[in-house]
Every structure is written in structure tokens, then in C-alpha cells.
Design a protein around this nucleic acid. Structure first.
Lengths: 157, 157
DNA sequence: GAGGTAACTTGTAAATTGCAAGTTACCGGT
DNA sequence: ACCGGTAACTTGCAATTTACAAGTTACCTC
């Protein structure tokens, strides 16, 4: 994905989404924020899928430009930048959850198996769960942590 | 997206989805099938986003390899190939619908504005609408057509 | 002030994409 | 059977984009 395409290829809703957040790496950043509570360049960089530094930087820039993320300087540490989801970004949670559902069904080895409780909740009512987890995401909590089987913070909505 | 990555980068549900269908062009193919009732190479090629012939071929091959599409020779015309969604592919409809919802909300010029009825139904219950529209998609009907404002075939579920 | 860290930027080779131009098989009409 | 035309690809390259390694700059911590 280049810096920024001059014009959208089309206003088809699917295409619009793809151009805004549909890049592979962009979506992994969003995943890191929502499911893992990550917030900074360095944390994203540590993801197992292996970002290249330049790609990570360009995707962060892109997501900020799209209004899906905001970037702020960390108050406690001047070197750090903190990326957060805007409303527009938070509204992507249901989409991420649908991906989880699909992969849970078709990936025999899916890590979703570790959060059966959450998967079931999403199946039952994605929209509701997404809305209820929003505050947690805003607070920077790793949504997944609460639902890891046998985990300490397991919670039922 | 290369022909086929040797191994998955991870079994994170989001990453799994991305590697299976998350490529920009792959998703546009799925959109063409679900919303526009397209079935053949030539029809996909005519999409306004402009597939390159080699990319289109490689993505179709990839989706078939992933078990999301099947390819069959057209009985009536030996030159044609017909691509259809498998169960695995049909299960992506809710995901496409979530994209529609998001884009309808954030793209001022979204074409989703032409199908307010469908958007509303999806908002109300994505899963149900997806299930009910499945047969139409299987029959190769363009889901969108039924919901175009003022269109002849408008229908309420 | 020295050493280390966070967030990037730059350089470059390798991989992927976008075009344009084939190729092969099949269709429909004559 | 022949012929122009179509459908689905494949191939060859130039232009992008990516992956990786190596900086750079600002800011902590000690």
C-alpha cells in the first residue's frame, strides 16, 4: 500500500474499507491494539508476524491519516508515542470479531481455541459484545486476556 | 500475496483470515460474487477497480487452494469457467456485511446509500440476514440488486 | 555525561504488481 | 470444415513495494 492513493478506486463499501484499513499490516496493528492492548511502535514491532520498521511506520501514518488512529506523545516518557483508536477505529471491532469467528471455525489450530468464552459471546451477539468491550479497549486493556481459558482475569459479560 | 506462503505466519485468528482471504484483490473477487452475482474470470476482470489479468488469475487460484472457491467448467460454454463459493466462502458473507456497515457510516459518498434497506437489515441482525441471503448467493443472484432503492426487484425479508 | 532506548529514516536487493502482448481451446455462423 | 471472435489464462518487463540492515535523533536513567 503506497503512502496514500490520490483517489479511491471506487466507493463500493468493500473497496472503501480495503483502502482505509484493509491492508494486511494495518489490520495486524488494529488487532494488536484491540486484542493485545498494545499502544506503541515498539510493541507492534515485537509482534510475531514480524513488521518491517519502514512498513510499520508507513501503516501507522496511514491509519492516522485515515482517522482510525490518533498519535500522541507519551506524557511519562518523551521518547514514546501512544497510538489509540478513534471512534472510527473502535467501530472496526465487530469486523475483527467476525474474522475471529471465521478463523475459529476453519483453522484447526486457531488460537481462538484459547478463548472459547469470547468466541461464544461473539457468536451470540457480536454487536453487543463489541459495544461492551469498547471501554476496555479504550483503557488499553488486552481484551483477550480476560477470556483466556483458565486465565486469572476471566470474566463473563 | 505470493502464490502460497509455505507456512502461516501465525495462528492468530486475524492473521489466519488475512492469509486466507485478506488480500485486497481476493476480497474484491468475493464481493463481486456475493453482491454482484459474478461468476467468471471475464466478469471479474470488468470490475471498476481494474484487476490485472495475472493478479486475477493468481488470486482465483489462491482462493480455490484455500477452499473458499471452487472452479468448474461451464456446461453450456466450454471456454468458460464458473467460480462458486464453498461453505467456507459463504461463511464470509457476515464479514463482508460488516465492511458494508462500516463504510456506510464513514464514507460520505458510499454506494451503500443506494441500498439503505439492506444496510438497515444488516445493522439489525447481520447473522440472520447473511443466513437468509445465502441461497440467493448460491444461485448466483446479485444480492444488491434486490435492495437497490427504487429497483424493480426490491424485497423485504 | 555516558550508555541505552524509542521511534523513525534511509539504502538497497529481492519480491510483487501493473501493463501489454501473446497463447490455447472453444463457439457460432457459413 | 473454416473463420473471426471470445474466454481464460500465461509470459515478459518496467515500475512499485517489501524486507532487511544500518543509520539518526531525541530523550531516559544512572
Amino acid at each position: 500500500m503506497p503512502k496514500r492513493r490520490t483517489r479511491l478506486r471506487s466507493h463500493c463499501p468493500v473497496n472503501f474499507g480495503l483502502e482505509a484499513f484493509g491492508d494486511r499490516w494495518a489490520l495486524l496493528i488494529l488487532r494488536d491494539i484491540v486484542f493485545r492492548g498494545k499502544r506503541s511502535y515498539g510493541e507492534f514491532l515485537a509482534s510475531e508476524e514480524g513488521f518491517s520498521t519502514n512498513i510499520l511506520a508507513s501503516r501507522l501514518e496511514h491509519l492516522v491519516a485515515e482517522g482510525i488512529l490518533t498519535r500522541a506523545d507519551d506524557v511519562r516518557d518523551g521518547r514514546r508515542a501512544v497510538y489509540s483508536l478513534t471512534e472510527k477505529g473502535l467501530d472496526l471491532i465487530p469486523l475483527l470479531f467476525e474474522m475471529v469467528l471465521w478463523s475459529a471455525k476453519y483453522d484447526r489450530q486457531s488460537e481462538a481455541a484459547r478463548i472459547p468464552g469470547l468466541v461464544e459471546l461473539i457468536e451470540r451477539d457480536n454487536r453487543r459484545v463489541s459495544a461492551e468491550l469498547r471501554p476496555l479497549v479504550v483503557q488499553g486493556e488486552a481484551v483477550v486476556r480476560r477470556y483466556v481459558e483458565g486465565g486469572a482475569g476471566a470474566v463473563r459479560l
